[in-house]
Design a protein around this nucleic acid. Structure first.
Lengths: 211, 211
DNA sequence: AAAAAAATGTAGTAAACAATACAAAATAAT
DNA sequence: ATTATTTTGTATTGTTTACTACATTTTTTT
C-alpha cells in the first residue's frame, strides 16, 4: 500500500498552497503527538494550536471541527505504524520473517518505553459509539493490518509450508488478536512481557501447522 | 475472592447511613452504566447526577472528585466481571472447564451486542498516564484475573495433566492476552469472530501441552 | 427531647472548551 | 497591475465542565 495521502478525506475545501500543506501537516503532527501522549479527550484544540504554533483561525481553516482532525490523526498514525513495521509486515511469508517481525515489534515497544499510545490500538478505547465515522475508519485500518498478515500466511499455505488443513485467515486473526492484547497489557503494565508472551504463543500456534 | 466492598478506598470520610450507602451505590451504578456506554471522558458529573437522580451536593458528598468516582467505578466493574465469570473462573483446572469458560465469555459478549465497554479492558485506553492511581488499580485487577487463570493451570500442571515442560504462568498470560485482544477487536468490529478465534487459538496452544 | 451528624436541595462560580467573526496579510491567477 | 484566493492574526462567543457555598431536612446519638 502506498501512502495515498492525508487529503482525500476533506473534499469540501481544496486547493492547498505549499505553505498551506506544510501548516496542515504541522497541525496533524502536533495533534498526533499530543493525542498519543495524553489521549484524544484530554487534548484540547488550544493545546494543538500551541504545539503546532498556529492560531485558531488556521486550525479551523484546515479542519472544520475536532472530529475531522481526529480522523486525520488516525490515518496518520495508522500509516506510521505500517511504515515502522516495514519491510517485514509486507512479506510475512516464512517462519523466519514472522520471527523477525515479532522481534521488531517488541523492540519498537521497548524503545517507546510504553509511554506511548502511538499505535492505533490505543485509539480504539477512545472512540465512542457516537463517532461512527472514526470507528469504521479504524476498522478498515485493522482489516488492512490483518490482510497483510493473512497474505503472507496464504502464501505459505499455497507453497505447502503450512499443512493443507491450516486456515491462514484464522491464523492471521489469531495473531493479530494476540498482538493487540499484548500491546494493551504491555502498555498498561509498562513492561514487555505480555506482548512477548502473547506473540510467542501465537507464533508457536502457527508453527504447529508446519509441514 | 469475596466482594470486599466498595468502601474501603475512601478513608477520610466515613460513617455511612443505610440510606447513604444506598445513594452511594446508586451513584456508582449510574456512573458505571454511563461510562461503559459512552466512555469516561464523555461522561460528565451532571450526566451522573441525572442518571442517579441525585443532586450535585450528594455526588460530591460521597466522592470528593471525579477521579475518585472513576476509581470506584473501576472496582465495581472489575467485581462485576469476575462475578459474571463464576463459577468457571475460580476453577479453571481442566480442559473441560477452560472450554466452558470460553463458551461463557463469548455468550456474554454476544449478549451485550458489543455495545458495551463494560468489561474493564475498555477502561485501559481511557486511563491517561497522569491518572497513575487509577492505572495501578487496573493493573492489580488484571493481575488478579491472570492469577485466577494461572492457579487452575498450575493445578493441572501439578496433577500431571500438563506436561512438566509447560509453563503454567506463561500459558495463563498468553490466554489473558488473547482474551483481551479478542475483546478489543470484537468490540471494535462489533462481531464475535476475533474473540472466538483468539481464545480458540490460545486454548489449542494450551492443549498442545497435554500429556 | 436535645444535640450532633449525616443527607439532600438550590443556586452559583470560575475555568476550559470548541467554535466563530472579521479583518489583515501573503500568495496566486489573470 | 489588478483581482481573486488562500493564509494568518486577534478577539470573542456561547456552552459545557468540574466543583463549591450554604441552607434545610432527615436521621442518629445521647
Amino acid at each position: 500500500m502506498k501512502n495515498t495521502n492525508d487529503n482525500d478525506q476533506t473534499s469540501y475545501k481544496l486547493r492547498l498552497t505549499l505553505k498551506g500543506q506544510a501548516t496542515r501537516a504541522r497541525i496533524i503532527e502536533a495533534a498526533a503527538d499530543l493525542m498519543a501522549e495524553q489521549g484524544i479527550g484530554r487534548t484540547s484544540m488550544e493545546d494543538v494550536q500551541r504545539q503546532a504554533k498556529v492560531g485558531a483561525s488556521q486550525l479551523y481553516h484546515y479542519f472544520h471541527d475536532k472530529k475531522e482532525l481526529v480522523r486525520a490523526v488516525i490515518a496518520h498514525q495508522a500509516e506510521a505504524v505500517f511504515e515502522a513495521q516495514q519491510p517485514y509486515l509486507g512479506n510475512l511469508d516464512s517462519f523466519k520473517a514472522l520471527q523477525a517481525w515479532r522481534d521488531l515489534i517488541i523492540e519498537i515497544q521497548m524503545g517507546r518505553q510504553f509511554k506511548n499510545g502511538c499505535s492505533i490500538d490505543s485509539l480504539v478505547g477512545e472512540i465512542a459509539e457516537s463517532e461512527e465515522e472514526a470507528r469504521s475508519e479504524l476498522v478498515s485500518w485493522f482489516a488492512h493490518w490483518e490482510g497483510e498478515i493473512s497474505r503472507g500466511l496464504h502464501d505459505m499455505h499455497a507453497r505447502g509450508v503450512l499443512r493443507s488443513e491450516a486456515d491462514p485467515a484464522g491464523l492471521a486473526l489469531a495473531l493479530l488478536t494476540a498482538l493487540q492484547g499484548g500491546l494493551l497489557l504491555s502498555r498498561l503494565r509498562k513492561e514487555v512481557t505480555p506482548l512477548a508472551t502473547g506473540l510467542d504463543a501465537a507464533l508457536w500456534y502457527i508453527r504447529s501447522f508446519a509441514t
